[in-house]
Design a protein around this nucleic acid. Structure first.
Lengths: 190, 190
DNA sequence: TACCGAAATTTCGGCAACGAAATATCGGCG
DNA sequence: CGCCGATATTTCGTTGCCGAAATTTCGGTA
């Protein structure tokens, strides 16, 4: 194994996670700092973007989850079923109902029973809904761009590619496991 | 310059996110696929690990948030203040109180007013708490190891390093922009 | 010493998400 | 044709989280 374990970081700028990982080293020495570091950073970044989104869309009278719902709807061309949204947004079915109801009250979507299959409901973005989404949209993503912009295009590609490989593993149900290299290690985090 | 825009992906395995990004391209052409891809994958991965943690720790009679709290506590050597936990776990102060109360009822932690500063409270892991944490710990993180294990040590280091740079940007308040403290920036994502 | 703003924690009210069960409908099969 | 398991959505009850306000204590200062 590459003895690639220490991170002298001479003068290299440190982020919050570096401190976090260092604090853990003594408690769980068998922990791979890079695994822990990567996972922790992803989690932090995800949360950060969430908070920023929250704030940003508020200027347009939307809450994060409302915007996300409109966004998901827009991603399907403005028409979808609750089930589609449930899948795209990773929600419990009950949550979808709640969100749509609120959005319908605000006039951003319309729900009509599908004539084709009467179990289904068609959810459609109204003009007002599309407008709200469009407006908030400009704002949304500026932060992603700002953050990821510190990397060069090549690096961004690298990052995305590395992550794809990890995600492919995640999308695999779970292989033979059992022993699969398995050392119990751990990580965790926020 | 590398042709940084198209992703031919000859025979390269595709993950869910590739499809997602492709669906969005026509709607929002100005969107950088690598930024979007990276962010989406991080979000998905974070969620995935969350679900796994949920499941895994359930076998030891814990819920995800309970485990996370014990974990945060253990990370500080078994002693911490609510404020420490609030910071480490990224929670609202009120949420910390709620979690600690539940854990105290289960006998996993003890809260005692700090004699040093009477505004403070000392939270301490009990033996039972440490035991519960330790047990669940093996399970948790095996998944992180499995997933990140598809990368070589060098690649893991790369990933962690790239993310550090991004996070450093995130930890920066938010540069100028302009008016009044706030031009919302934003990100998006499930 | 008495006062005042800051800090740590808890209480309160409300909201969104979840799991489970209920409701309505579909599609196939005897 | 009528039954049955599967599917789509909603209803119900519970829970955790959050923001804001209240409470207590601290540290500095006049």
């Amino acid at each position: 194994m590459t003895r690639a374990t220490h991170r002298p970081a001479a003068g290299r700028p440190r982020d919050w996670t570096d401190g976090h990982v260092e604090r853990w080293q003594p408690v769980l020495p068998h922990l791979d700092p890079d695994v822990e570091g990567a996972v922790t950073r992803m989690s932090k970044l995800t949360r950060h973007l969430g908070r920023v989104r929250e704030q940003g869309v508020a200027d347009y009278g939307l809450q994060k989850h409302e915007f996300d719902t409109l966004h998901g709807l827009a991603g399907r061309g403005g028409r979808a079923t609750p089930s589609d949204l449930r899948a795209d947004l990773n929600l419990a079915p009950a949550s979808v109902t709640g969100r749509l109801e609120a959005l319908e009250r605000r006039g951003f979507v319309v729900r009509t029973p599908s004539s084709d299959d009467r179990r289904r409901v068609d959810v459609e973005l109204t003009e007002a809904g599309r407008r709200a989404w469009r407006q908030a949209l400009d704002v949304v993503g500026r932060e992603e761009q700002r953050l990821l912009g510190v990397l060069t295009p090549v690096e961004r590609r690298q990052l995305s590619d590395l992550l794809r490989r990890v995600l492919l593993a995640a999308e695999q149900p779970v292989p033979g496991s059992g022993a699969g290299g398995g050392h119990p290690e751990t990580g965790w985090h926020a």
